[in-house]
Amino acid sequence: MIDSLILQQGSDWRAQAEVFDEIFFVFLALGTLVGTIVVSYTLWNVYKYRDDGSEPKDSFDAPVVGELPTGQGGPKAKKLFLSFGLSAIVVISLVVYAYGLLLYVEEGPETDEEGDIEILVEGYQFGWEYEYPNGHTETGEMIVPADQRIDIQVTSRDVWHNFGSSELRIKSDAIPGDTNSNWFSVSSEEVEAQGGEATFLVECFELCGSGHSAMKGQITVIPEDEWEEWYEDTEGESNSSRIDAPAPGGVSA
């Protein structure tokens, strides 16, 4: 729990995908636990208070349809307020926990301004173009280093698009004349796990025309030293992607 609230120390940042996976796991685990307890308690009461054909005991306080079991501080009232109290504790704890994580997702980890990498992402019918701080552009493929916060500014040159990668849990509207900010980060461990070069599919999540389904791209993450060497050789150049990408204004064959 403490590790979840302290989301970055030095270079140990939490990627958005990791944060969302953790939130999903916590909600799933707690929901399964609470659901199991509630269903088990319900089934136990069904068995305990089943109608076996005998006369009920004089002390049996039967529930009345349409009436809250508040009583005068009796056992039913205690159970009611106990269940309400426990439910409130669980819900409030989950809200505080998830809100803290989502604030981190929105703001991102703190970095030195000199170390920030900001890339302009421009959507068009039907592809993606990426412009780096030195003016270099890539079409279809964004190449970035591991263990770095990558800031993206997303816009469009024609119609509404939506830039997103399900694997990285990022998604931003690409609107003509407007810019939306987002960020992501990929660890070197993930890069090593994929053989030294991690790739993530980019898709458009906004219906934007006849070539919408073909509007795909790729984010390629490589070790930082390899990226710096690649970046030094890109000044003023513009390259098409190493993957097949549709030409601006058309649909890939």
Rank of each mutant, 00 (worst) to 15 (best):
V202W: 00
R149T: 12
S93V: 05
A62P: 08
E232Y: 07
E192N: 13
D61P: 03
T137Y: 00
G10I: 02
G140H: 03
D178F: 15
S166L: 13
A17E: 14
T155D: 03
Q16G: 12
K79S: 15
Y99W: 14
Y49N: 04
F205P: 07
E22G: 05
D151W: 15
A198K: 05
E237M: 12
E18N: 13
E22M: 12
L101T: 03
E235M: 15
E228C: 10
R169Q: 15
L102I: 10
E107M: 07
L68A: 13
E110N: 09
I222A: 03
T36P: 15
E226N: 14
P223Q: 11
S59Y: 13
E131W: 02
G211Y: 04
L201G: 01
V154E: 05
I150K: 00
E22H: 07
G249W: 08
D233K: 13
F81H: 03
E113H: 08
G211D: 04
E190S: 11
G108I: 01
V96E: 04
E131Q: 03
S40K: 09
T137G: 07
G217H: 07
Y124G: 09
V95R: 02
A193R: 11
A198M: 09
F20H: 11
Q194V: 05
D58R: 05
G71S: 00
F60I: 10
S93P: 04
C208F: 07
G135F: 09
Q125M: 14
Q148T: 09
I2H: 14
G177S: 12
V202T: 06
H212E: 07
Y124T: 13
D178A: 13
G140F: 06
T155H: 11
F126H: 05
Y130D: 03
T42G: 13
E55V: 12
V159A: 14
E67W: 02
D52H: 10
E18P: 01
L30A: 02
L168P: 12
G74N: 08
S166H: 15
E189Y: 03
I243P: 14
A98T: 13
Y47R: 12
L102F: 04
I23P: 07
E192F: 09
A17K: 15
V159C: 10
